[in-house]
Amino acid sequence: MNPIPLPPSDKSPLVFLELLYKLRVRDVMSEHLFSLPRSATMRELQLLMAEKRITGVPVVENRRLYGIVTIENLIRAYDQGAIEAPVSDFMTTAVVTVEEDMPLSIVMSYFAKYDYGRFPVLSVDNEPIGIITARSLSTRLLLELFKAVADLEAKLPPPPPVSSTCYFKTFRVQKSDFEHAGSAATEIKNTLAARGIPPPIIRRVAIAAYELEINLVVHSDGGTLTFRADEDDIQLIAKDTGPGIADISKAMQEGFTTANDWVKALGFGAGMGLPNAKRVSDHFHIASQLGVGTTVTIRDELPKK
């Protein structure tokens, strides 16, 4: 398998293509070039590979590249019982090299074209000065991409001013997670208290949040509970990814439940969750589709200051 599956296409994001043309081999290559002379033994190659944790070593003498020996060559030497033979007996002499000022776009196409994990880098004077591996390339590319994205983000217009009193948080609620059920409602209640919301409203919102959270734990395949508070109102949105409610009007009837005995033993599943959540909210909306999920939106208005 080639470490870099495909050269970039014209459909790649522009910022990526620009990087591939802007960056040169010298920007990405490893300058720590570990090499061996032709007379070095395969045993020495093995020790160097183990010490430096590398899988391919160029064979260099007098600043001239003669070949490359890789782990495959080492295995072959072992097979033949020739571990003390010189690397020149096993090295590949038809070495594919890259030049230091080549753009990365060409190197990527090399990785796709040749089944090699590394390419020695030659200077303009044809001297080996480094090595480029799939790993060094991808690491550097990632770093450059992070930088490019950060530059792009810095150019984005500033976000519209948000009221300093606006609070927003989304809690993830797992299916059947009774251990943490209610922790979101607890946090919501504490947040509202810290914001100085009148206690009767805190109680209504906390009860609604708790009912919705328990519903997510008991009835859904998991979902989120989003809480937003500003100067005018408080909103709760419980959204799950299934299984959906077959008959919403039945689900809204007090006492109607599909909960099992296990849930009832934990003190819930009395069929009062949705009706109670509606009871304690100024605005209540529910939408559900079988196989898709359910969204309950609740809003409580705050008294005008």
């Binding site: 009774f178 059920a181 209640k189 708790y210 934990l266 003190g267 009395a270």
Partner: peptide, 30 residues
């Protein structure tokens, strides 16, 4: 049944229950 407790409008009540789970405490808090 915590579902019933959540329906109550009593102000600052003492919750009496035999349900020994976190949910009793969370319901009391709510």
């Amino acid at each position: 049944l915590m579902s019933d407790v959540l329906m109550t409008d009593e102000d600052c009540p003492l919750l009496v229950t035999s349900l020994v789970s976190d949910q009793s405490i969370r319901t009391a808090h709510v």
